[in-house]
Write a protein that binds this DNA or RNA. Sequence first.
RNA 1: GGGCCGCUAGCUCAUUCGGUAGAGCACCGCCCUUUUAAGGCGGGUGUGCUGGGUUCGAAUCCCAGGCGGCUCACCA
Length: 495
Amino acid sequence: MMLEDNELIQVRKGKLEELRAMGINPYGQRYEVKDHAKEIHGKYGETSKEELENGKVQIKAAGRIVALRSFGKAAFAHILDASGKIQIYMKHDMLGEEQFKLMNLLDVGDHIGIEGFLFRTKTNELTIEVEKLALLSKSLRPLPEKWHGLTDIETRYRQRYVDLIVNPEVRDTFVTRNRIIKSIRAFLEGMSFLEVETPMMQQIPGGATARPFITHHNALDMDLYLRIAPELYLKRLIVGGLERVFELNRNFRNEGISIKHNPEFTMLEFYMAYADYRVLMDLTEELFSHIAQDIKGGLKFTYQGDEIDLTPPWSRMSMEEAIVKFAGASAEELNDLGRAREFAKKNSVPLEDGLSLAKVVNEIFEKTTEFRIMNPVFITDYPVELSPLSRRNDNNPDMVDRFELIIAGREMANAFSELNDPQDQFSRFQEQVALHDKGDEEAQFMDEDYVRALEYGMPPTAGEGIGIDRLVMLMTDSASIRDVILFPQLRKEQP
RNA sequence: GGGCCGCUAGCUCAUUCGGUAGAGCACCGCCCUUUUAAGGCGGGUGUGCUGGGUUCGAAUCCCAGGCGGCUCACCA
């Protein structure tokens, strides 16, 4: 990337030299900030003009100049700090010759520190009259224009720092993201879950069906995979007796990028000994309600124009029932391979040859039903062939005890009773290896150590994964995953 | 990776049919000590994404490439 050097930047570099000639270092030292914009507004928002004149309120604050209106011998500006904006007023009388010269060299974008006192302007705006002005950092690049701001999506993602300066709702989104994560931790810790960290660099990438990123350790001369899921490690911890664990961190999948996929994304996974997937349904309802109360102040809100109601209990239905209800198939159609394929064709669901009935139904669900589900629905009755780590259903060994949670047309969570039979797990890994040998790049790897762990005995356990980015999208009404990830993955910038 | 759309000044956008690029904000100069999209007067600062081609002449038409958005496929 070439750093451009246009006239606007040249002018500011000129000011830099002028400042240095005046003995001012344009990149200052520490500044003891005592007051912040939001606190000032909160504390003195109701204080009258007269009260402020009678009892002087001294202020020491710092921030970035985001608006500047100058009158020759005086100027108004707004400074922005992490908490918000406040207006300042600078005038020749108060500043004296030296500081007035400095004032005239200020630009929108500069960081300054100010000491002064509060007053109210003619229009009654709470304002700091500046007695002492310090330049803390000179900005060489002009900020985007004040009316339209920065709207170019590529620049907003590539230069998120600029986006954050000029688009306050972006800052709000990431503050909310952090509140959601804190809310989740508080909820799980309240239930005695232990937060743990397991390897992101794995010798055998397991726990999901996805293509991994590969990296190399030089000293060990060994290829490693960035994890696609922490699942198998977390269950080893259940074997180890930790009983309730969770991990809230990044996964990496070498798949396509879209409005709901980023190569690295944040996942919550938690495992609970002695529970089953039905326990997790109740827990999930509680967790989401807890978060929605914290963030939205209630269980009803809109997402991208659609009404969402998280009030429990949520619908629970099998994949087939959901297709019948939301896509208008009949139960008989979905129980016969030929008729199911016909239904798929009618609904333009592309199918490869030789798929089993279970896989055909799964395809139909994903293409015709999932996007129609707005309010939360727990989808159950997944076939064993799609779930190599899940416990078989006691009544139907072809099915597993698993659910996916759909909200706003998207998979928000995936949970199941864990397979704790080491012999069954071993043979399911073998089936995956056979699929991999046949060219299925996403089939899972054999993990013998994991089977060995199960041989020591894992208590009956239920586990769940929740896509945090998608949850944040839901709670912040964001259309794209890139709007809830600070630095989404992009191609290399043009030279 | 496929399809569709976009890319013009620092930012937001114009430029009708191919005739040699212009508005606002920002910036620069002058005036201005209560403004808040401050105001008044004056000034256009450009690799038109890149590289080819067609043409007397290309931001505009054609080809190739780049980056981005949406979408399909893969996936959560």
